[in-house]
Write a protein that binds this DNA or RNA. Structure first.
Lengths: 179, 179
DNA sequence: AGCGCCATGTAAGTGGTTACATGATTGT
DNA sequence: ACAATCATGTAACCACTTACATGGCGCT
């Protein structure tokens, strides 16, 4: 499932521009699927070329024409087929965890900084989830499930990090205490 | 932090071949950083070219020469610098969650299959964690922290999915009950 | 005066994936 | 017999990232 397919899926909720979709990638999708303009605009262009979306150009003064995309019947069909893959993958690439594997080679202050930085990110996700909770009344069940998943896992991460961060600097703490 | 840097980090624990490193990517690193031979071998070749690792070729009969890599002083230096970046990123790209956002467009049986498949994957991680727990006695603190993180988060995922999967098929269940 | 929002896109680059190529040894 | 393990690599491909390019409007 690539950016194209996700865009197609988002368009089932109604017509939208590339700019609109970006906002959705930054809000409800932010915790599990990132995409920038550099992926979204080419994706929409390609979908339009394949006839999977229709594009309405709305002229605007002083700005580029606003291009509003609308999923077509062929697009709906295509999406349903993509949605039949029952083995989607859940990929994680964490530089955070990779770094901490080598915490013993780092300066303790840097380890602390890395942990703080991660907790900040987690805090920002939690703010986001709080905002989203207020407007999810009419969301489809799947979206609610996914938001709940993000919330639960983010909280689990926060709890684990807070409870176990002391393990990362224990060696130095021990040295500081005895030496 | 790319594959090259992680390989360099792994080599601080002792000399190893590309094949050895792959096994580590499949065990203790599997839950947060994937890499195949297609990334590892070129990474090691590039590290050797930069003088960050030394390579000893051990001739073997019937097999390609075993190339054992050993981190050099320059490599250690380079790694320490890479480890000073205090804003490592934690990337997730989940086709699983992306699909479930559109669960209402899927066939209920397919939704079930997707959930089962994910639970299977989670189960395999849990087996892996159990194996790893038996041999982590002499691991550095960071590795233990990271393993614990994986365990805790994987359990949180399992619990959330099991407790909330019913939300995904509720619409159909309701229809089935009344109609 | 300056920032953030709206609004589109391209071009070059990167980093990783997939498929291919080879082949002996050891266990079942 | 057959599969798994050991053991290396390359070449083509792909999807995405980053940096660039443009520019008016509204708020403070």
């Amino acid at each position: 499932m690539d950016v194209k397919t996700v865009c197609l899926g988002m368009l089932t909720e109604g017509p939208a521009s590339g700019y609109d979709l970006k906002k959705q990638f930054e809000s409800s999708f932010a915790h599990f699927f990132a995409a920038g303009y550099g992926s979204i605009y080419p994706a929409l262009a390609s979908l339009a070329e394949q006839g999977l979306v229709d594009c309405e150009e709305i002229p605007q003064e002083g700005k580029p024409d606003r291009k509003v995309y609308c999923i077509s019947d062929a697009g709906r069909q295509h999406l349903l087929e993509a949605l039949r893959n029952t083995t989607p993958c859940h990929k994680i690439r964490s530089e955070f965890l990779a770094m901490l594997c080598f915490a013993h080679l780092m300066r303790p202050a840097d380890v602390e900084a890395v942990v703080e930085h991660r907790l900040d990110e987690i805090g920002r996700y939690q703010e986001l989830f709080a905002e989203l909770s207020d407007c999810m009344g009419d969301w489809p069940a799947g979206m609610k499930f996914v938001l709940g998943f993000g919330k639960a896992i983010t909280e689990a991460k926060e709890a684990y990090i807070k409870e176990n961060r002391h393990l990362l600097t224990e060696e130095w703490d021990a040295k500081a205490a005895t030496g």
